[in-house]
Design a protein around this nucleic acid. Sequence first.
DNA 1: ATAAACCCCGTTCTTAAGTACAGGGTCAAT
DNA 2: ATTGACCCTGTACTTAAGAACGGGGTTTAT
Lengths: 145, 145
Amino acid sequence: MVQFQSSELAKKAGVTVETLRYYHKEALLAEPQKTDAGYRQYTEADLQRVLFIKRCQGLGFTLKEIKELLALKDDTTHTAGEVKTLTQEKIALLNQKIAVLEEIKTTLTSLVKNCDGKGGVSDCNILKALSTNEEHNHLGETSSC
Amino acid sequence: MVQFQSSELAKKAGVTVETLRYYHKEALLAEPQKTDAGYRQYTEADLQRVLFIKRCQGLGFTLKEIKELLALKDDTTHTAGEVKTLTQEKIALLNQKIAVLEEIKTTLTSLVKNCDGKGGVSDCNILKALSTNEEHNHLGETSSC
DNA sequence: ATAAACCCCGTTCTTAAGTACAGGGTCAAT
DNA sequence: ATTGACCCTGTACTTAAGAACGGGGTTTAT
């Protein structure tokens, strides 16, 4: 069986050794066997697990969520439906975030449109809008972030 | 001149007294006059400043950015153009963030579409896709976040 | 047999935007 | 004159995901 030491696995996975230690501490990755000197000996399965974590992270899952995902994956009594649900919840969250950002963007864009950028700060329509509570500049409370 | 004590201003501005203390520490808000007993006496201008901060925050500006904005606002030698530029940069950032989220959403959505949610975790097409590096599942490195 | 390049462990530091807490003064009313 | 509701200060804690550090062991090559 092929074994790697920590820096080797780290390089293959595109993380640092510190990150691996962190994953061990957070129980995302089990401690592998160790040599007599206490050196970790990782396997291909460990590498795959770290890559899985990294892929999930790239898709916006937090380590906490990834831990859940891994727990489902590790325990065959769980179902595909649970994974699907988790993923759909993530999509819903994503939609919320996108909607908030879009709304903010709309407001900022209209602020910029109303500002010719000429004159001193006291002439700036953006600052004027931000300095008043009036409704007509879309500046209602952008509730939960 | 009307003066408020801290909890009063906090209530009017929708923040806590602790937040005000934090803004003082961060130099977003100057320390107001104090009574002999050391009690802060805020003015209407202080209230407006906190409201300004909160509005900017609602639009996704960080306190650091708001500090910049306030610095421009406070110093009349600055121009409306600077404010406009800052705002436009924020919009650009916003667009980047939205694009990243949209991309992730696309990937997750296609993962969900390929998973019927039936069977155990070993049947789950989402987990299968996340467990392999193949190109056909849109799982390329979602670079900078 | 010693230097370079690894490895280990435990602990502290980082960012953002506060929140919480400990310990103590003050003001108004009873 | 004492209770309750304020106020002050300074310090530590929070979340997320590691990064950095200090101090020390090991392996490999020279």
